[in-house]
């Protein structure tokens, strides 16, 4: 029930923050209540998200792209699939460009974070965020919100990697860190493997992984959202 308590606490904090937040995208975002952790997870809407960044340090590094897709309960709605390239300040470090294949030229075609982030917040409003190893997304999105709107990001979050770790630990099987990667887990659940490595395909892969994990935990009678948070 700790999850339930913290979930309820989260919405209380949202209301408290809403009173202090000046009008703007973050205020609009906070104005919609979070889904109650008591709700059946199949009745909740989610946004699966993935970020590409210039590095792993949210204070120093920048967001390069945001990909997201909305889930209505246990259906991924591909009409909502979105991908935004973000123009960055300064050069993209070569070592990160190797991973995400976003070069300075490509990034230059993107939009400002000030335009991309509100769009994402609008999609996220009233929904639960899904991410794989959500810590990165929470830190970078939080830092971006703080920088642009003067307040951090409060959001109920499902971390598909944390769920996978809990499942493996509960089954008392030995596993390596690499077993918890998005693609390794996708294989375990018979999910398609996307060749392109970008924010949207990873967001989609995380969304599919969530459906798979939920299907394996749900005995057919549903579960409270709180069990996934």
């Amino acid at each position: 029930m700790a999850d339930l308590a913290s979930g309820l606490l989260l919405d209380w904090r949202r209301r408290w923050r809403l009173r202090k937040q000046p009008p703007g995208p973050l205020c609009d975002y906070l104005s919609r209540p979070f889904p109650s952790p008591r709700t059946d997870y199949r009745e909740v809407e989610y946004v699966a998200v993935d970020l590409e960044t210039t590095g792993l340090n949210a204070r120093r590094d920048q967001i390069l792209s945001i990909g997201w897709v909305v889930l209505s309960g246990t259906r991924i709605d591909l009409s909502t699939a979105s991908h935004r390239l973000v123009r960055v300040q300064g050069d993209i470090p070569a070592e990160s460009a190797v991973i995400h294949q976003i070069t300075d030229d490509v990034a230059a075609t993107g939009t400002d974070l000030a335009a991309a982030l509100p769009e994402f917040l609008c999609a996220l409003s009233g929904r639960v965020m899904i991410a794989h190893h959500a810590h990165v997304e929470r830190c970078f999105l939080g830092a971006a919100c703080k920088q642009l709107f003067g307040g951090g990001l409060l959001v109920p979050t499902v971390d598909t990697q944390a769920i996978a770790r809990r499942i493996l630990e509960r089954r008392q099987v030995a596993f390596k860190a690499s077993d918890l990667r998005l693609h390794a887990l996708g294989e375990r659940y018979n999910l398609p493997r996307y060749g392109a490595h970008n924010a949207l395909s990873d967001a989609l892969a995380a969304a599919e992984l969530f459906l798979a994990e939920a299907a394996y935990r749900d005995n057919g009678r549903g579960m409270p959202l709180g069990d996934f948070l």
Partner: peptide, 11 residues
């Protein structure tokens, strides 16, 4: 066409 689709996972 992809944008017209939904995705489901069936155990």
């Amino acid at each position: 066409l992809p944008k017209k689709l939904a995705v489901r996972y069936l155990r």
